[in-house]
Amino acid sequence: MPEPVLLSIAAALATRAVAGLYELVRARFEDDPVAIAALTAAEGAPEDSAEVRVLGDVLERTAANDPGFAEALRREHAQAAREGRVNQAGRVTNHISGTVHGNVLQAGDIQGGVSFK
């Protein structure tokens, strides 16, 4: 099973949420019919689908064989995540900058109240 970041990238590719990421992958896959088929099959698929997992596997194999691609892929994904353009499959993304004087809570779903004492 691909590592979580590759599944997040595959999910972003499936929705074409990040144009630069999609173009990077499409260009790298252009001479590989199996990889292009995986990318095409994943388009519009839910992030937890078999198609997205297969695309994650293809990304993992390609990245393992091409360190330059792996670095560019992770860099583009990280930039998109910092800018809030990528939903990281069930994760919460907070952007905190500057000096914090007080409490910060990072959470997914909260059932009930939250208090800081």
Rank of each mutant, 00 (worst) to 15 (best):
E30Y: 01
D109K: 14
A107Y: 12
V25W: 00
A12D: 12
T15G: 14
A72G: 07
S49M: 07
E71N: 09
Q79K: 15
S115D: 08
M1E: 12
A70I: 10
H95W: 07
Y22P: 05
A27K: 12
D32K: 01
D31N: 13
A27I: 05
T99L: 07
A78K: 13
V86I: 10
G84S: 02
S8W: 03
A35G: 08
D66H: 13
V114C: 09
M1H: 13
E30H: 11
E76P: 02
V104T: 14
V104C: 06
L21S: 05
V86L: 07
G84F: 00
Y22F: 15
Y22E: 02
G20D: 14
G56W: 04
E83K: 09
G44S: 13
F29E: 04
V18R: 11
G56F: 07
G44R: 11
A78R: 14
A10G: 04
Y22K: 06
G112K: 04
V25G: 01
V114F: 00
A70Y: 00
V18K: 08
E23D: 08
L13W: 03
A89P: 00
A19P: 07
N65T: 12
A89V: 08
G113W: 02
M1Q: 10
E30T: 11
A19Y: 11
E23L: 05
R91H: 11
A38V: 06
G56A: 05
L6E: 04
I110L: 14
L7I: 10
V25P: 05
V92G: 06
A42H: 08
V58W: 08
P46Y: 02
R61H: 14
L59V: 05
V52F: 12
E3Y: 00
R16M: 11
A10F: 02
R61N: 12
T15C: 01
E60R: 13
V34Y: 13
L24H: 09
R75Y: 02
G112P: 15
H101S: 07
A64I: 05
T93W: 01
N103M: 10
L21K: 05
M1F: 08
P67D: 08
F116K: 10
L7P: 03
E83L: 09
S8L: 01
G84C: 01
G44H: 07
D57R: 02
A27P: 07
P4T: 01
G113S: 14
A17V: 03
L55W: 06
A63G: 02
A12P: 15
A63Q: 01
T15S: 14
M1D: 13
T93C: 00
G112E: 06
R75K: 14
L13S: 14
A17S: 15
P2V: 01
A64L: 10
